[in-house]
Design a protein around this nucleic acid. Structure first.
Lengths: 135, 135
DNA sequence: TCATACTGTAATAAAATATGTTACAAATGT
DNA sequence: ACATTTGTAACATATTTTATTACAGTATGA
């Protein structure tokens, strides 16, 4: 199962892009995505730590973008919400006495690194503004 | 969490490639990957359904490739063990009364489709023989 | 200054998914 | 016949993800 972090974060950022001058509350955002506000705040905490958004506590508080949507790429959002793309690893340590077992994870990691590199280039070309303008 | 199906299947196929003339038992394969033989047999069932391998029941039974490793691409293996690459979706149906909620999943799906297409092209170039020759 | 409306965060619960185990019928070689 | 192996179902456990509750802290403004 893949977590919804990237999707949730994109959703949050798209809303913030649509209302660039307002501080949106986690409750309002949660309403658009039918999600618990606490989870929205958790993703916002992550975005804040990376200086993508800023928030204001207290009454009439909320969150807004801290830079222009055109200056944020999907690659950044991806890196902030996803370790890296991979097609999985077997859970258990393979048998180190088998030539295949000994190297399989390393070889898979190299394959996955190639994939990530390509996907990264692709995502780098798309800004949050691009993505949001589709709505 | 991403399941280990792709990795497990690759591991199985690499072993079969290394011993192209033998029927390898699920127990032997499981030993190389430190995995329960039943899980190996489950992945083999999937490979059989797609005519990648064939197996023989009974004493001295086991599984072998049913085509040459050079004729099997990682793209095929990927498609057989993975729905498609995606960066996740929020679990709940978003609010259809919000313009963003209404279209977010569709827009994400389009983004993911682009990613899959590129990754597919990349995996298509790599045969099982290529991958196995790294060991 | 006090009620109200927010954020921030921890602790815990519930749900979903992935992996592991046991069991046994059916097949096949010796 | 017997031993060995696949095939598969049923069930158990572990892990991860999502949801909920609770509450301290902060700002606003009546």
């Amino acid at each position: 199962m893949i977590s919804g972090k990237f999707a949730i974060t994109i959703h949050i950022l798209t809303l913030l892009t649509k209302f660039p001058n307002d501080f949106l509350s986690s409750e309002f955002i949660a309403g658009s995505m039918n999600l618990n506000p606490v989870l929205v705040r958790k993703e916002i905490a992550n975005l804040k730590a990376h200086h993508i958004v800023e928030s204001k506590e207290g009454k009439n508080g909320g969150t807004k973008l801290s830079k222009k949507a055109s200056a944020i790429t999907l690659k950044e959002i991806f890196e902030l919400t996803f370790d890296n793309i991979n097609l999985g690893y077997a859970k258990n340590q393979p048998n180190p006495d088998c030539p295949v077992g000994k190297k399989v994870n390393q070889n898979l990691a190299e394959l996955y690194a190639d994939i990530n590199e390509k996907v990264g280039l692709q995502l780098k070309k798309i800004t949050l503004e691009d993505f949001s303008s589709q709505f």
